[in-house]
Design a protein around this nucleic acid. Structure first.
Lengths: 338, 338
DNA sequence: TTATTTTGCTAAATCGATTCAACAACCTAT
DNA sequence: ATAGGTTGTTGAATCGATTTAGCAAAATAA
């Protein structure tokens, strides 16, 4: 923690040239035919002087920064922070450092952050694209910059991605509710064009249709920026008109806020309404009627994203779109009514 | 996003020397008496060629990295990810980038991560010190490296820190429970020597003593690494022996796990037992008997940590230990029994 | 012995940007 | 006309590490 020791200092101390020191310390003594005697002295001295290479200089020389960017919508969202943890662990195993940024679902922020990170010299990017970012993603694709989309993807852009199989997710949930005898199953979704939400909606719709049931009227879409009030309205409508006997919430945030609303309305779960949430949390489990939810394979999604990125950084033409399988964790909130 | 344009490329394009380009692009045209004409052409060309400076080179030259480290116990813990978000936002306003790492409460990891981050050239460190890290912190202090402790501090090391006023926190909670008529108030704590836990314990003990009540026998300490089972045992003991009519959990994790246990034991809150938790979350609010909790001023704590660090990086002798005020959010779980 | 190869090491160039010293060219004063 | 000052620009050094070309000295071959 004192002033930094450089390769020159070691060279001076040992009485050799800086080049030789560099060669030895990079384990290339044999390759450059350095005498065993000298090599040993260099290593010993380096240790004694607590030498640590200046990574900035190393990076400048090599043109590599050992940096990757992770752009999520909000790192304080437990879903993304859990992913960040895994990505970070895995990246650091490979000697990479992760720069994390949050976009707040805002396109301008996203564009800015991509620029900032590229400027910082990241060698690759893991990106949760926000609504309206298709152009940006297309540009990223065109530029051939190593990029992996996380959690969300664009079906007609052939960029690597690591996402949940979203159709499957709501298919599982819908089938389960149908099995439990529910027929008027509603959906609380975001009012967005983002593919992952659209997929979740179609997983539901397709399942309803194959069961010969009408799905369409029951999809309630909520503004992504001011959801609380609108969730309340949507649920009120579904309850009061007795339109629905079950509701699937398409995100964790929608479900959690939904629970607050349902409590306030004094709706009994599952007697008055069965519910299925998205992404488990303690609140779901500790709710008086523990909430059935669609569980994302968090670890797999995170690992795939960073592994794909690492592979892509190594070989220019590597590409992989993966869709991981959800799991339905069945608890009381969606069970058959007594 | 194409191959990088360097200052040399611009120099060549304009027909001047790289030095001149550098001077102009750093806004030092006047200082170095560069001709207006040329300066304008340089700026125009730089824009046209989409010049972006190579930050690695800049950093090497300046010796500054514009990097700070944030070492927490676990970035996937919502408390720390919320803090990370705020620190990150604030740092990036000042053109700093935050490198985040997780120690898992492990000393070896902490030592390693400090080394890694120093190696990467961070200009300062925000650190959540784990149990047993006093030596490390002392070394950091002695080295005079810009460091701010977060969430936890050492009373006899005069290093900057940003923490909750932990004594006050449990004082509030204990006083509240006493007011509500509870007398046998127990504590579920970690079995640790860390100051923040000790402070929380003494806030409780002091309050109990001034009320003329015996506190000591009711502090149950749980192993930090395997808490679930031990929480269960501790609560079982307190309930079965009718030792306690109220429990304060000293961390969010203890409280959340406590709720699971109490549910399993079919203990009614607050009829059988009043409870107070630490750090709110949705589970507390959605619990059938919404949980009273000690709320930390997250934003203030986070802001103080990064602000202090920035100030310290600027001026070598700056130092500040702050203790932020907690707030007690009173809900049903701690109210007087009917 | 002379020629050739091997061994062990160093000097110099490089990565991209910054900054200081230096130097023309021109202008002004005496 | 000579000295001194201004203006506008460039070359070289530097940050710390890596790598290539090259050069002595020693070892081997002819």
């Amino acid at each position: 923690m004192a002033k930094k020791v450089s390769i020159k200092d070691i060279a001076k101390a040992v009485g050799v040239s800086p080049s030789l020191v560099s060669m030895v310390l990079n384990g290339k003594a044999a390759q450059y035919r350095i005498g065993d005697e000298v090599a040993k002295r260099v290593i010993k001295t380096a240790k004694e002087m607590h030498y640590a290479p200046n990574l900035v200089a190393k990076n400048l020389r090599s043109g590599k920064t050992q940096l990757v960017g992770l752009i999520v919508t909000d790192i304080s969202n437990p879903f993304y922070s859990a992913i960040a943890r895994i990505v970070e662990d895995r990246a650091s195993e490979k000697n990479y450092t992760v720069l994390i940024s949050s976009t707040d679902e805002n396109l301008d922020n996203t564009e800015r952050l991509v620029d900032v990170l590229l400027n910082k010299g990241v060698e690759g990017l893991i990106l949760v694209p926000c609504d309206g970012s298709k152009n940006l993603v297309q540009r990223l694709y065109d530029s051939n910059f190593p990029t992996v989309l996380l959690d969300r993807h664009f079906p007609d852009i052939d960029l690597s991605s690591s996402c949940l199989d979203n159709k499957e997710a709501t298919r599982f949930a819908t089938e389960h509710l149908l099995e439990q005898g529910y027929k008027n199953i509603a959906l609380i979704a975001y009012n967005t064009g983002m593919q992952h939400i659209l997929d979740r909606i179609s997983g539901y719709e397709e399942t309803m249709k194959s069961a010969g049931l009408n799905a369409y009227i029951n999809v309630e879409k909520v503004n992504i920026l001011n959801p609380k009030e609108e969730i309340n309205d949507a649920l009120g409508k579904l309850i009061n008109n007795k339109q629905a006997d079950a509701v699937i919430f398409l995100t964790n945030m929608l479900a959690t806020n939904g629970l607050y609303c349902l409590n306030e309305m004094d709706v009994k779960i599952p007697q008055d309404l069965a519910i299925v949430g998205f992404n488990g949390n303690d609140a779901f489990n500790l709710f008086y009627s523990p909430v059935t939810y669609i569980k994302q394979p968090l670890e797999q999604i995170a690992k795939a994203s960073i592994d794909i990125l690492m592979e892509r950084i190594k070989s220019n033409d590597y590409k992989s779109k993966v869709f991981l399988e959800p799991e339905l964790v069945i608890q009381q909130s969606s069970l058959k009514r007594a």
